[in-house]
């Protein structure tokens, strides 16, 4: 596919008195695009507009040539992986993925077959008949990813898919996104941390306070952000061992044990940090159960960019 996949033209979105999107014009093409911004920047609002969950207050939204709010069949060409952790009570991974596949227009038997294949491929074969509410964060994200792509959409939209996910699951999810993009799927993925996406994405859109702040290739945007120290919070049953392993990483300038499960690390080279962390974890036999990049990172960078320091 060539040309625009997503077009927002002077899009405005208000929630009562709150202005979530402010006259935003955006053109997203094929490939993987990262939608990056701090909390309340407007990322979820853009995703809501693109997936047809809400109409704009003003302006125009076109996705794959149609209006996702009014065009019901069009939504069958879009896959959506929400940030929300909530699913129907008691529903297993297999039931969730199968049922949502059926809702996307797949025949029930075919949906069941595809769900089993997809969950097995992504490493949830043993857990697919357990309730999703018993899944770890990483397992839930994988199940949500499966439901989003079961109907083989042309556009996949993911809202913070790596938030809180353990390092190995991150690698798997990013690899899966690259594979899907290689097969021609366009992908829009949001995050409040550019560095966790940068190995997978082609282009970056920076959003701040409902406005487009910058857009470009990963390299262009990274140059703007890398001057700032970046902190990462990790959860592990062995925080001391983890802290000492982290200090071996190039670019790590500080490590702090917060409590008996939590370690904070500060790095000046986030790209390398996220790239080598899985190897360190597996090589040293450590367990990292969750990984977050606090939103304050990006807030600091955005304050810097808004002031014009980024050029």
């Amino acid at each position: 596919m060539t040309g625009s996949v997503i077009e927002l033209t002077r899009a405005v979105k208000r929630y009562g008195p709150v202005l979530a999107l402010n006259d935003l014009t955006l053109d997203v093409g094929p490939g993987i695009t990262g939608l990056v911004g701090p909390n309340a920047a407007g990322k979820s609002t853009i995703i809501g507009l693109v997936t047809g969950l809400m109409p704009p207050t003003a302006g125009k939204v076109r996705v794959l040539g149609g209006d996702p709010w009014d065009d019901t069949p069009l939504r069958g060409r879009i896959g959506y992986c929400p940030d929300s952790e909530r699913v129907w009570p008691g529903m297993t991974g297999r039931q969730l993925v199968t049922r949502l596949g059926i809702y996307s227009g797949i025949e029930p038997a075919e949906a069941a077959r595809r769900a089993e294949d997809a969950l097995s491929e992504i490493g949830l074969a043993a857990a697919m008949d357990k309730p999703v509410t018993q899944y770890s964060k990483g397992m839930r994200q994988k199940a949500k990813l499966c439901q989003a792509v079961l109907h083989r959409p042309e556009l996949l939209v993911l809202d913070e898919p790596l938030n809180g996910v353990d390092p190995l699951s991150r690698v798997e999810i990013l690899k899966r996104l690259r594979d899907m993009a290689g097969q021609g799927m366009s992908i829009l993925v949001s995050s409040h941390v550019l560095h966790e996406l940068e190995t997978a994405i082609d282009r970056v859109v920076l959003i701040h306070r409902g406005r487009l702040l910058a857009e470009g290739t990963v390299e262009e945007i990274r140059d703007l952000l890398d001057e700032h120290p970046h902190s990462v919070r990790l959860e592990s049953p062995e925080p001391r061992k983890l802290a000492s392993a982290l200090l071996q990483l190039d670019g790590v300038v500080g490590v702090q044990i917060v409590d008996d499960r939590t370690v904070d690390a500060t790095t000046r080279d986030p790209g390398q940090f996220y790239g080598t962390l899985p190897d360190i974890v597996t090589g040293s036999g450590l367990t990292v159960e969750a990984l977050w990049s606090p939103d304050s990172n990006l807030e600091a960078v955005f304050r810097y960019l808004v002031k014009g320091g980024g050029g």
């Binding site: 969950l53 019901t72 069949p73 929400p82 809702y103 996307s104």
Partner: peptide, 15 residues
């Protein structure tokens, strides 16, 4: 209220 509407309303289902 349960937060599951996002799954339904983003599908090709008539509202």
């Amino acid at each position: 209220e349960n937060g599951t509407a996002v799954y339904l309303l983003s599908r090709p289902l008539s509202r």
